[in-house]
């Protein structure tokens, strides 16, 4: 019952927001030329669903994100496992990580544009670079959370260190890694559209650039609306998967950033 009420309030909030925007536009308080009417944006958004070009551009952006994320997982998680289980590796690499991590990924964009002949590859490279950090940090964080008693229990039963990693460390770090994937996914989307806006190629960013140079603000905002919806969906799906898969453990990983 409380959930239904909550949902109802949320719906009212969204509807109210749209109505207010519509009214502000219609009465001319907000120039409908600058920000199109809510109704215009919504119908535009509905039309985009049958717009083949838009859909294929969305596909490009999402596939870049997915490829970049997979590569990042393949790089960052093993690295994090190595750092988290062998203290010497962690101590050696830590300063490097601390120096590289805060570098804003977009600062590397001009370099990536030089290095990769295809814009697609440069985009993916930047996505990998950005997504690696939250994954790495969360993996490390998760490994630090492993109960030493659990490890010692296994050792006392004669398991080797490989088994300890496989049977204890990885499962206990898994919720944190999943949180890392969720954070990385939202970051990846931001980096992907940024690269598309600046460097061109294909993707939602390019679609938006074209629409805005054709002065179709309604289309720009409609495309932005869908991108937000996609981001929201991906995030809540991953969050749901997290809480479903790891009911035994509520990951406390801080939302480590970009």
């Amino acid at each position: 019952m409380t959930n239904a009420r909550k949902a109802l309030r949320g719906v009212l909030g969204v509807a109210g927001f749209l109505l207010v925007m519509e009214a502000l536009g219609r009465t001319g308080i907000i120039d409908p030329y600058l920000i199109p009417l809510a109704s215009t944006i919504l119908t535009g958004a509905a039309r985009l669903l049958t717009n083949g070009e838009f859909l294929s551009q969305v596909g490009v952006t999402l596939s870049s994100c997915a490829i970049g994320l997979l590569l990042a997982v393949a790089v960052a998680v093993p690295l994090g496992m190595a750092m988290g289980t062998v203290p010497a590796v962690e101590r050696s690499l830590r300063p490097l990580v601390e120096f590289l991590r805060p570098i804003p990924s977009l600062a590397l964009l001009p370099l990536a544009m030089f290095l990769f002949l295809s814009g697609e590859q440069g985009k993916i490279a930047l996505i990998v670079y950005t997504s690696c950090w939250p994954l790495l940090i969360n993996t490390l964080y998760g490994l630090r959370d492993v109960d030493p008693l659990a490890k010692e229990t296994l050792r006392s039963f004669g398991f080797g260190s490989y088994d300890v990693v496989r049977l204890v460390s990885l499962p206990s770090a898994a919720p944190f890694i999943t949180t890392g994937v969720r954070i990385a996914a939202s970051v990846a989307l931001i980096v992907a559209v940024s690269v598309e806006l600046v460097a061109g190629g294909d993707g939602i960013g390019v679609f938006v650039t074209q629409a805005s140079s054709g002065n179709r603000r309604d289309v720009v905002l409609a495309a932005t609306l869908w991108t937000g919806v996609i981001g929201l969906l991906v995030n809540s799906l991953l969050a749901k998967a997290e809480s479903r898969l790891f009911r035994w453990h509520r990951a406390r990983a801080g939302e480590e950033a970009l």
Binding site: R5, K6, R9, G10, V11, L12, G13, V14, G16, F17, L34, I35, S186, L189, I190, A192, V193, S194, L197, I204, G205, V208, T209, S212, N215, R217, V220, L221, A223, T224, L225, T227, G228, V229, G231, L232, N235
Partner: peptide, 26 residues
């Protein structure tokens, strides 16, 4: 909270770079 949460969650999910073209026209 209940009224505004969905809106805020939505705006949080919009990649902010996409709005730069719109901001630029304003």
């Amino acid at each position: 909270c209940d009224v505004f949460s969905p809106l805020i969650h939505f705006f949080r999910s919009v990649p902010p770079p996409l709005l730069i073209p719109i901001f630029m026209t304003m």
